[in-house]
């Protein structure tokens, strides 16, 4: 009885989780379309930041409150009270929103992940303290919390990002804590432990990659809520100062509607609607793609 030795080289090579997810995401045509829209917004934001587009938003391009017209693209969405192009203001607003969304998520995600991981992994006193902290913060109405932070830190884009970031980490922290509680008892972690892996190695090398899909999905949802909160804060006059934002545009529209000027509201809400919807669909598709159960 002889049997052929297993030829290891001939085994089909497995795909990594990310590669697999990417393949599945690509199959979803609509999600890819939405992703390209989000990337388009990001590109516009970068170009605005570099001063290549919308740098001239503060210049007068027509009469005060000119309605939308087909001529120059600057006038597609009409003009505001000072005769400035509404479309340029909307583009500039996209830059503000994307920046706030990105920065706030970049603050909230690491804070949430690190605290959640520590709480879930170590348990005991550390867990108690962190649980107390996020329960307390989540009990404060988020809008009021951000309002009071905006008053303390002063107004402007930076303080708004800090305010948003320091309140938005709660959800992700809670989620990661739960996952870590579950994973730390799993065999693969126990195996790593018996091989002498340190705590840090077990947290970051072993467990974290297994919960990273949650981080990515949450990142996209945090992004959306940051954009929405930016608009609300700016609407209340606590957001960005002296530069256009979708929130301030909607605030202006509140009075302008009475005189029949609808285009600022239309432009700002349309821009916001498209990006929020796209991010939502991308987030949903990501969840499906990254979920191992749906393989």
């Amino acid at each position: 009885m002889s049997s052929a030795p297993v030829e290891i080289e001939k085994l089909p090579k497995g795909n990594s989780l990310t590669k697999d997810a990417w393949r599945r995401l690509r199959r979803d045509k609509f999600a890819m379309f939405c992703l390209s829209i989000v990337l388009g917004y990001a590109l516009v934001a970068v170009l605005t930041r570099l001063g290549l587009v919308a740098g001239t938003w503060s210049e007068q391009v027509g009469k005060s409150y000119s309605p939308p017209s087909a001529g120059s693209w600057h006038l597609w969405f009409g003009t505001d009270i000072f005769g400035r192009s509404v479309i340029l203001k909307t583009i500039y607003g996209a830059y503000v929103s994307m920046t706030v969304g990105l920065l706030a998520s970049l603050i909230a995600v690491p804070v949430g992940v690190v605290l959640g991981a520590a709480a879930g992994y170590y348990g005991g006193k550390i867990d108690d303290i962190i649980t107390w902290l996020y329960t307390t913060i989540s009990n404060i109405d988020p809008t009021l919390f951000i309002l009071s932070l905006a008053f303390v830190l002063g107004k402007g884009m930076n303080s708004m990002c800090i305010a948003l970031g320091s309140s938005a980490w709660v959800g992700i922290c809670r989620l990661i804590r739960g996952e870590f509680l579950k994973h730390k008892e799993r065999e693969y972690v126990q195996a790593a432990k018996s091989l002498g892996a340190s705590d840090a190695r077990r947290i970051f090398i072993h467990i974290l990659p297994n919960v990273s899909h949650l981080v990515i999905i949450n990142f996209s949802f945090l992004f959306i809520s940051a954009i929405k909160t930016e608009v609300i804060l700016s609407y209340l006059g606590l957001g960005v100062q002296g530069i256009p934002s979708w929130g301030t545009m909607i605030d202006e529209a509140k009075l302008e509607l009475a005189r029949g000027v609808w285009w600022q509201l239309a432009a700002a809400t349309l821009a916001m609607f498209v990006v929020v919807l796209s991010l939502n669909i991308v987030g949903d598709a990501l969840r499906d793609a990254l979920d191992p159960k749906l393989k």
Partner: peptide, 28 residues
């Protein structure tokens, strides 16, 4: 003030002072 019209007026002040090269920052 933080209301809409006050903010528009502040933008107007900013715009006017820019004409002579003086920069302003608005605080509501």
């Amino acid at each position: 003030l933080a209301d809409t019209t006050s903010r528009q007026m502040a933008e107007y002040v900013t715009k006017n002072l820019q004409k002579i090269g003086v920069q302003t920052k608005v605080n509501t």
